[in-house]
Computed example of a mutant assay.
Amino acid sequence: MRYDKRTYAHANKWTPEQAAKITVKEETVDDAIAAAKLLKEDPRIDPTCVYLIGHSLGGILAPRIDAEGGDFAGLILLAGSPRSLADILYDQNNAFVAAMDDKDPKKEQTKQWIESEYAKAKRLQDMSMQEALTTTVFGLPAYYLKEMDSKLPASYADRLSKPVLVLQGEDDFQVYPDKDYVLWRELLGGKPNVTFKLYPGLNHFFVDYEGEGENTPDEYNVPGNVSQEVINDIAGWVLKQ
C-alpha cells in the first residue's frame, strides 16, 4: 500500500500555525500506523504478515513507526540511517561545497553558513519551544528536527527483535554507505534477526545509473527503474520469514 504524505496531498489546507508545528509524527508516523491498521483489518490480508518498507526518511522512521503502533511482521530499511537528519544534511551540504570551484567566491561563504547551521543543530535539544518554532536549521524548521531528534532510530535498536532487512546502494550520495550503512551494522549487526545487503552501482533510489551527471542530483532527472535484484531480494526475504 502506498499513499501521498498529507503535507503533499493536503498542502493547501494547512494554516501557518499548523505548518509551523508540524513534525514527522503528523507528517508520516501517524498515517503509516493508520495504514497498517487498515491493512490488518482487511479480511483478504493475514494481519500477522504486514511488513513495512521505509525508504530514506521512511527508513529512518521505520523503527519508530513500528514501536508507536505499526507493530509490523518485519521492517525493510531502504537507504535509511540511524543518525539525526541534521547530521545527514551537514554531510550533504559539505559534499556540495567540496564540489564547488575553489575560485567561486561563494564557496567560503557557504562553508561558513554550513558551520553556522550545524552549530544550531547541535543545540536543538536545548532550544526553548518558542526558539524552535522561529528558527530554521539547514532550511528546515528547528521544531521539526528537535522533535525528530528526541526519538532517533538508534534508541529503538535494542528492542528490535523482529525480522529486519537493511539495504543500501554503494553509489548513494545522499545517505552514506561508509557512514549510515556502517552504523546500522554496528547497531544491529550482532542480531540474528537482521539481514544486510549493499549493492554495487545502485544510487539512493536503488537505480543503476551510468552517464552524464552521475553521482550528482542530475542523474535523478533520467528515468530509471528500481533494480530487479533489489525487488527479488525483498520478496525472497519476506517469503522466508
Rank of each mutant, 00 (worst) to 15 (best):
V29S: 01
D30N: 06
D30Y: 08
D30R: 04
A32H: 01
I33M: 02
I33N: 01
I33G: 00
A34I: 03
A34R: 12
A35S: 08
A36R: 02
K37H: 07
K37G: 04
L38N: 04
L38A: 14
L39K: 00
L39I: 13
K40P: 01
K40I: 02
K40A: 06
K40H: 00
E41K: 08
P43W: 05
P43E: 13
P43I: 07
P43D: 12
R44F: 04
R44K: 14
R44W: 04
R44H: 14
I45F: 06
I45S: 04
D46E: 05
P47Y: 02
T48H: 13
T48C: 03
T48S: 15
V50T: 00
V50K: 00
V50S: 00
V50A: 03
Y51T: 00
L52C: 12
I53G: 04
I53W: 03
G54Q: 12
H55V: 01
H55S: 03
S56Y: 10
S56T: 05
L57D: 11
G58T: 11
G58H: 07
G59Q: 07
G59V: 01
G59D: 02
I60C: 09
I60H: 13
L61K: 11
L61G: 05
L61P: 09
A62T: 07
A62C: 13
A62M: 09
P63V: 03
P63C: 03
R64N: 08
R64C: 06
I65A: 03
I65P: 05
D66L: 06
D66E: 14
A67V: 09
A67P: 02
E68V: 07
G69I: 11
G69S: 10
G69H: 07
G69T: 05
G70R: 15
G70K: 08
G70T: 12
G70N: 11
D71H: 15
D71A: 15
D71W: 04
D71F: 13
F72Y: 15
A73I: 07
G74K: 09
G74C: 12
G74L: 06
G74D: 06
I76C: 14
I76Y: 14
I76T: 06
L77T: 11
L77N: 10
L78D: 10
L78H: 13
L78K: 09
G80A: 08
S81F: 07
S81Q: 04
S81L: 08
P82M: 12
P82N: 09
P82F: 08
P82Q: 14
R83D: 15
R83Q: 14
R83H: 15
S84M: 09
S84H: 13
S84Y: 04
S84L: 12
L85V: 15
A86N: 11
A86Q: 15
A86L: 13
I88C: 08
I88V: 15
L89F: 12
Y90S: 10
D91R: 14
Q92T: 06
Q92S: 07
Q92M: 12
N93P: 05
N93D: 14
N93W: 04
N93E: 14
N93M: 11
N94S: 06
F96V: 10
A98P: 01
A98C: 00
A98H: 05
A99F: 01
A99D: 13
A99C: 03
M100D: 02
M100C: 01
M100N: 00
